[in-house]
Design a protein around this nucleic acid. Structure first.
Lengths: 209, 209
DNA sequence: CCAGAAATGGACCTGCAAGTCCAAAACCCG
DNA sequence: CGGGTTTTGGACTTGCAGGTCCATTTCTGG
């Protein structure tokens, strides 16, 4: 019943989701009409409601999932290999690069605020994304602790939460200011301090000896 | 010409803005119809368009300004007196308290994403708010440096940017997770490290002597 | 090649919410 | 008071975007 999609159907559905996502990134959630999606993807209204019987809401949900997946994928393989300071730097650079390229077009922007109220499901998708994201960072911090690059008394979970907050806020501020400074500051200050804290410890030990 | 409001008119206008703001906080920007505002403020359509000739857009702009002003006001007098560690703590506590009380109802939420595209003016309002906010924090950091509580080599501007990003991200994450953990983590980790950095320096100096 | 199912196109319907308009009431000031 | 202005109420218009429907075409499996 729920499974009745031909290969062609599958393709069309994917095309609609991708097109809608692009359109939303470009114009914003509430500026996008179904008609825009149709024009942009070369589909008809019949198709839209064939693949998304619940209409716009269902489509937005699919787009949300699509975009959320993309966010983490774009950070790989760096995000899953935060095992040395150069690796952290590479991840940091990738983030900056990605959001610089993306500019003001943030896929999650609309998802959080507006869509979040409309579709309760969207909220869940975003929340899930954030958890996964934070888990990856926590994992990275723990690994650095295991190699002695980060002091063992650092609360990995808490630090990851703070760093994630900094990233999200940095992106958010980029949306209104148009500059990437806050994202850079949040990333660099946090990472620098993680390193510096350890370096100070070492200095302390060196001096004490 | 631009000035033709009686005291009564002034009052009505203010009532409309305040009512609309409340409604938006409660239901979200795009769920609020002019009719809702009318019902909630006991006004008629004629009045709405009398005080806001450009309609919804102009009203939203007025609401944005109203809310933006409120955000900083709510942090006073702490925000303007970040002159000791207890003062920083008091400010931090005020922020947490405020956002805990506010819950998921963030006035800026809609302003950034959705309204930002609709009304270019709203973008400017939010950006202005962020600048003023960051300036206050920078000032606080500088003051702490002048009293020797924060190391002089700390980049005040950059640190403030990172802290502001953390706050914004923390609030944002609260909107989707419903928990205040990220905001707490962002504030505490950053402030703790500002203090710890200095403490380490002192330890270093003590040990060296 | 042929049923039956899926995919497609597009005309049509419908409801709603922003915006218009004007007449009546309240108000201000000399 | 009284004339002019502001304020108020609410009926009416309008456009639009989401959603419905069905006829037609294309695909799939045997």
């Amino acid at each position: 019943m729920t499974r009745a999609l031909t290969r062609k159907g599958e393709a069309t559905r994917a095309r609609i989701v991708a097109g809608a996502a692009a359109e939303i990134r470009e114009r914003g959630v509430d500026e996008v009409r179904l008609e825009d999606v149709m024009a942009h993807t070369g589909t008809s209204k019949g198709q839209l409601f064939h693949y998304f019987p619940d209409g716009k809401e269902e489509l937005l949900l699919a787009v949300a999932q699509h975009e959320a997946d993309q966010v983490l994928t774009d950070q790989e393989p760096m995000l899953s290999n935060l095992t040395s300071w150069p690796a952290w730097q590479a991840w940091r650079d990738r983030l900056i690069e990605r959001y610089l390229a993306q500019g003001v077009k943030c896929p999650l922007n609309g998802l959080l605020g507006q869509t979040g109220r409309r579709a309760p499901g969207a909220q869940a998708i975003v929340t899930g994304l954030m958890w996964r994201w934070q888990d990856k960072i926590t994992e990275g911090v723990r690994h650095m602790q295991s190699t002695g690059d980060i002091a063992p008394d650092v609360d990995a979970e808490r630090t990851a939460a703070a760093l994630l907050a900094g990233i999200q806020g940095g992106v958010l501020l980029m949306l209104s200011t148009g500059k990437i400074d806050h994202l850079e500051a949040a990333l660099d200050v946090t990472i620098e301090r993680l390193r510096a804290g350890r370096r100070d410890d070492r200095k302390l030990e060196e001096v004490r000896q």
